[in-house]
Design a binder for these strands. Structure first.
Lengths: 193, 193
DNA sequence: TGAAAAAAATAAGGTAGTTTAAGAAATTCA
DNA sequence: TGAATTTCTTAAACTACCTTATTTTTTTCA
């Protein structure tokens, strides 16, 4: 069944009975997103937190000069949103785009707030989700501050092999905070030796 | 009363009755930390999440070469820990040091886990705390990727005026990911015009 | 208080990473 | 399929930021 993956994701941290499961499932919108389609863009308010059932999405910041900075990739079994704008229900800072055709489940802020009240276990679930997200971001900050681009690149390759398969060098460069040209020279180093 | 500040901090997101308040307070250890004293260091396991009642603390990563990268500052009314090592109860990655004489409340991982069970409202409380921490870290990542050191410095001055008063230029530089020498030249720019 | 230590400023030379440009390779889609 | 678009590579010139060194200023603490 298509809901199995998201239910297994939830079950990793809390257990729901039948009724709760039904309630949760009914709060979701399933959506198919084609390659290069945006699920969040421009001045639009970020209404949803998204669970990736299949496919790959990318969230990036676009500055006035047109430079993209990739904030995160999300593959199957990951959650992704513009967290700041989702929580405050204000115009998006990030653009979220499908890197390949994907199926996602969308949970709106309203539904989530209702869920917190109706099934308080979801406080625990998202406490763990945000705790892990915070840990990941903090590790990334440590690496951004203390490592060279080349070291960060190799860590990325090891940490996210699934992502590496789906995205372009250009997108990886924008995640690492370097230009595609410089990433290309880094990649050159490996084979030289 | 010395507990007022932490109780007001909690009350911002959840409300506790008398008994719950007493239970929470009894799970805390109060501690006075003098300037330059460490509350987490070296290979020590990170046992506590810390609430700063008064004073200023700093968490930093120390690499093999001896370079410090400041991960966060915490002033009065903030929470600070080495979140990765606290959650996994493993040897610390970060060093946490008092920038000035401080009074903190320490909540151990064991006590926190007990609290989650006894008073599930704390799941909500820390869900909000971690959600906000995640938002802050993500904004920092966006800035690290898209802005110059000079822009990041001015944002830091505006965002954390309280911190700026207590810490050295050297510590701010290590938060921004630049050398103190370069921060000094940035500061020079302002007056030149 | 004053000697020692730490922090901050200034400056010169160096390097990691950028910019611009142009060609080669891979991907897209009518 | 093949023309158009995008991505990747290479390379040379450039710049933001680093390193090392020295001096000045501020802080520490016996």
């Amino acid at each position: 069944m298509i809901n199995d993956l998201i239910l297994k994701n939830i079950a990793r941290h809390i257990s729901l009975d039948k009724e709760e499961t039904a309630c949760f499932i009914s709060s979701l919108k399933q959506r198919k997103v084609s390659k290069k389609e945006f699920i969040l863009q421009g001045e639009e308010v970020c209404k949803y937190i998204n669970f990736v059932h299949s496919g790959t999405l990318r969230a990036y910041y676009l500055d006035k000069a047109g430079k993209e900075s990739t904030i995160m990739f999300a593959v199957s079994d990951w959650w992704i949103t513009d967290i700041f704008c989702f929580i405050n229900q204000q115009p998006a800072m990030l653009t979220i785009e499908a890197v390949e055709e994907s199926i996602i489940f969308q949970l709106s802020k309203d539904e989530l707030d209702r869920l917190y009240i109706k099934i308080p276990k979801f406080e625990r679930f998202f406490r763990v989700i945000f705790q892990n997200a915070y840990i990941r971001e903090q590790l990334r900050t440590i690496q951004n501050l203390s490592l060279s681009a080349e070291e960060r690149y190799h860590i990325f390759l090891n940490k996210y092999p699934q992502v590496v398969k789906q995205v372009t060098q250009k997108q990886i460069a924008s995640y690492l905070g370097i230009t595609p040209e410089f990433l290309s020279t880094i990649r050159g180093h490996k084979h030289k030796k």
